[in-house]
């Protein structure tokens, strides 16, 4: 499955940027937030801020980079099939 990312600003109440994660048919799967510098060890990581039904069971992890996030989401979708 090929996922695409679209930059978006996320209104977390803090100054944080994010990415929309879309599937091949441009369905919105998740919103990732790039964590700002207030989170100690997690700052700079990508947080699964919100997700939709097909990602149920994935929890709300943080990923060290966008490739890791895409990989985890793609694997979850593949297991679902």
């Amino acid at each position: 499955m090929s996922l695409t990312l679209q930059p978006i600003r996320v209104a977390t109440g803090f100054d944080e940027e994010g990415m929309l994660v879309l599937d091949e048919e441009q369905r919105l799967l998740a919103v990732l937030t790039h964590l700002s510098d207030q989170y100690d060890g997690l700052s700079g990581h990508w947080y699964l801020e919100a997700k939709f039904g097909v990602l149920e069971g994935l929890g709300q992890p943080t990923y060290p980079d966008l490739d890791a996030a895409k990989e985890a989401i793609a694997q979850h979708l593949a297991r679902r099939r």
Binding site: T12, G13, F14, Q38, Q60, T62
Partner: peptide
């Protein structure tokens, strides 16, 4: 919550 959410809540 997630730890990220706890962090934000406490900051707020």
């Amino acid at each position: 919550f997630t730890t990220v959410h706890v962090n934000r809540v406490l900051q707020q």
